[in-house]
Simulated assay, not measured.
Amino acid sequence: MILYIKNMVCGRCKMVVKSEFDQLGLPTISVELGQVELKEAITESQKEILLKNLQAIGFDIIDDKKSITAEKIKNLIVDLVHHKNNELKINLSDYLVENLHQDYSTLSNLFSELENITIEKYFISQKIEKVKELLVYNELSLSEIADILNYSNVAHLSNQFKKVTGFTPTHFKQLKDKKRIQIENL
């Protein structure tokens, strides 16, 4: 049995969700971003308790097919931007079609309808958050960050960064109160 979980965006999310399943005595086969595969089906009462526990820590169970697909799109983009830098060179639409086995226009329309943002804008917001993270670490030059995130050049990265945040990357680095947004809130 597979349950789809909303707002799982990182390794820590996977650990927290797995812990909830373990505490309820629900053995899992695997816990991945956005989904948990269980060894056996669970009862409605177990599902209600699980839902209550997951909601208390910022997660949710998704049951409808459209929402599951939208969550899969978000998880693929988060994984691509935050964990697979070297794969950013592929076309996003091809990446999503390859992984979800659906036509891109269908995916795009569904995502925009449910999330009130285009896939492209969501992808850009994830990339900008990754830029912010790398700027805060202060270990890489802007040129290296542009290269890692597959921007054509520093100017492109800077223009997109300013358009989204209102700051240049240099000004952002100088801010004491870095305005980063948690991934699940994007």
Rank of each mutant, 00 (worst) to 15 (best):
E184F: 06
L186S: 05
K18C: 06
G58W: 03
K178C: 04
L76K: 03
I117Q: 13
E144K: 14
L107W: 00
Y137G: 14
L175I: 10
E184R: 05
Y104L: 00
N91T: 05
G34D: 08
H82Q: 04
S45P: 02
I181H: 07
Q160G: 06
Y151D: 02
E129M: 15
T170G: 05
Q35T: 11
L54D: 10
M8N: 05
Q160C: 07
K162C: 06
S143Y: 12
C10G: 11
T106E: 00
K179F: 09
V78R: 04
N109H: 00
L134Q: 15
S152V: 10
L140I: 12
N159I: 05
S30H: 13
C10R: 09
L38M: 13
E48L: 11
D177F: 10
Q160L: 10
D103F: 00
E40P: 01
K130G: 02
C13M: 07
Q174L: 09
A146F: 06
Q46Y: 03
F161R: 11
N159E: 08
N53A: 13
E129N: 15
S45T: 13
E129W: 15
K74I: 04
S143Q: 11
L50T: 09
L88E: 05
Y104H: 00
T170D: 08
L135W: 14
N138T: 14
K52V: 07
K47D: 01
T106K: 00
L134T: 15
L149F: 04
T170C: 03
